[in-house]
């Protein structure tokens, strides 16, 4: 049997909340599409941390499986998202979300 961790698991949840909020700030405040992508990765990591902490708390493997799937979806998302970014940059010579406003009217 593995001994119980000395750090209460609620600390991990608070840390995940802080990381998620930093990611939200990054998405809402930065202008570069690349940094927005990185902030999304930050949020996904915060949620992964939360999943693993809950999984540890309930001594169940299902949270680990969910993190596995989140990683796979994140890989797919980054591949497609960066391809879109390259396409935008090729056409408009900018990766700035404030300058790409074709749908804004």
């Amino acid at each position: 049997m593995t001994p119980a961790p000395t750090v209460p698991l609620v600390c991990y949840q608070i840390l995940a909340a802080i990381l998620f909020t930093i990611g939200v700030v990054g998405v809402l405040v930065r202008r570069s599409a690349l940094i927005i992508f990185m902030s999304i990765e930050l949020m996904l990591n915060a949620v992964n941390l939360s999943f693993v902490a809950f999984s540890r708390q309930h001594a169940s493997m299902d949270g680990h499986i969910f993190v596995f799937f989140v990683m796979a979806v994140a890989a797919a998302e980054v591949a497609v998202g960066l391809a879109i970014l390259v396409a935008i940059f090729r056409n408009r010579d900018t990766a700035n979300v404030d300058d790409v406003r074709l749908l804004r009217g």
């Binding site: 049997m1 593995t2 119980a4 540890r56 708390q57 309930h58 001594a59 493997m61 499986i65």
Partner: peptide, 23 residues
């Protein structure tokens, strides 16, 4: 069980074997 001590987990928790068995 927010602040409560977390339960002990069996040996091999989170190992590739355990993940693969569920996955």
């Amino acid at each position: 069980g927010g602040m409560a001590a977390s339960p002990t987990v069996p040996t091999g928790f989170g190992s590739p074997a355990a993940i693969g068995r569920v996955l």
